[in-house]
């Protein structure tokens, strides 16, 4: 159920990317898709009644092993979030440049890119 809702978020981003003509809307759709994928990876590692993967003083190692959520998706999603920021920044810089050149965000007006 939670997975399906997360996937709905991804599909909304996909729809936005495929149908919108405004180039900033396309970047927003890409960002929504990225958020959905990050959330899904963290959802996969969640353990019911789990604790954060931080060792507390006095907790036995075996008990910690049995209760902690999966730390590996979290570590890789940290990387993914930061890379997503870089990629989105690059895309927005390209949008700003296109606006400077053509005076619009509408991709059907940006004609010289047509093949």
């Amino acid at each position: 159920m939670v997975y399906a809702l997360c996937f709905v978020l991804f599909v909304i981003g996909l729809y936005c990317t495929l149908t919108k003509k405004n180039i900033v809307k396309i970047v927003i759709g890409l960002t929504i898709m990225e958020y959905a994928v990050n959330l899904f990876l963290v959802l996969l590692g969640y353990r019911k009644d789990g604790v954060a993967p931080i060792v507390e003083e006095g907790a036995g190692p075996l008990e910690f092993l049995a209760r902690s959520v999966d730390p590996l998706p979290q570590a890789l999603v940290v990387t993914s979030i930061v890379i997503g920021l870089g990629v989105t920044t690059l895309a927005i810089a390209l949008c700003v440049r296109l606006y400077e050149k053509y005076g619009t965000f509408d991709i059907s007006e940006i004609r010289r890119l047509k093949g």
Binding site: Y46, V51, Q74, V77
Partner: peptide, 9 residues
């Protein structure tokens, strides 16, 4: 989801 580092980032 018990991921405080991710929330901060």
């Amino acid at each position: 989801l018990r991921a405080p580092d991710l929330a901060i980032v």
